[in-house]
C-alpha cells in the first residue's frame, strides 16, 4: 500500500504544480490580456487616420502609467478613418475631455500603444465620449522615404564626383 500512496501523492503534487504553472502563465503573464469576467471601467472612442500595427489589447497609458487597454479597432467607412475603442479603468475618471490621443511606440522596436496627453478642460471624459484630438502612428517607412527623398535631391549635384 505504501508505494502506491507515495506514487499517488507524487503524481498529485506534480499535476498540481503543473496546473499552477499553467494558470500563472495564462493569467498573470499576459497582463490584463485575459479579462476575468466583465471588463471594468468605461469606454471612450478615438478616430485615427492610421493606427499602424496597434492591436486589440495594446495598452493605453498616460504619463507612462497604464490606465487601460485597446478594446476594439474597426474601420469607419463614413470618413475612412480607424475607430478605436479604449477601455479605461474606472479609477482614472478625471481625464479632461480635451485630452489628445496619440499612437506611440515602446522603445525603438517595441509594440504600439495609445498615449493620452491631458488637456486643460474642467470637464472630464465620460463613458461613450470621443477624443477629438488624435495623432496617428508614425509609419517608419514613410519617414525613411521622406528622409531619403530630401537626401537624394540635396545630394544630386555631388553624386557624380563620388563615382570616381
Amino acid at each position: 500500500m505504501k508505494p502506491q500512496r507515495s506514487l499517488e501523492i507524487g503524481t498529485g503534487l506534480f499535476v498540481l504544480l503543473g496546473f499552477a504553472a499553467l494558470f500563472f502563465l495564462t493569467t498573470q503573464l499576459p497582463g490584463s490580456g485575459l479579462s476575468l469576467g466583465e471588463p471594468t471601467g468605461y469606454r471612450v472612442t478615438a478616430k485615427f487616420d492610421n493606427v499602424g500595427d496597434l492591436k486589440v489589447g495594446s495598452p493605453v497609458s498616460m504619463a507612462g502609467v497604464r490606465i487601460g487597454r485597446v478594446e476594439e479597432i474597426r474601420f469607419d467607412p463614413n470618413d475612412y478613418r480607424a475607430a478605436v475603442s479604449l477601455q479605461i479603468e474606472s479609477s482614472f475618471d478625471r481625464i479632461p475631455d480635451d485630452s489628445d490621443a496619440s499612437i506611440q511606440t515602446q522603445g525603438l522596436l517595441g509594440g504600439k500603444y495609445v498615449g493620452i496627453g491631458p488637456g486643460g478642460s474642467e470637464t472630464f471624459l465620460k463613458p461613450g465620449s470621443q477624443i477629438e484630438f488624435t495623432q496617428s502612428a508614425i509609419v517608419l517607412e514613410s519617414l525613411v522615404n521622406k528622409f531619403f527623398a530630401n537626401f537624394a535631391s540635396k545630394d544630386a549635384g555631388t553624386a557624380t564626383d563620388k563615382t570616381e
Binding site: 499553467l22 502563465l25 495564462t26 499576459p30 497582463g31 490580456g33 497604464r66 515602446q106 509594440g111 500603444y113
Partner: peptide
C-alpha cells in the same frame, strides 16, 4: 506583462 499576449502563451501550450 504588457508585451506578452495570451496568444504567445497559447502558442507555447
Amino acid at each position: 506583462q504588457a508585451a506578452v499576449e495570451l496568444d504567445d502563451v497559447n502558442e507555447g501550450i
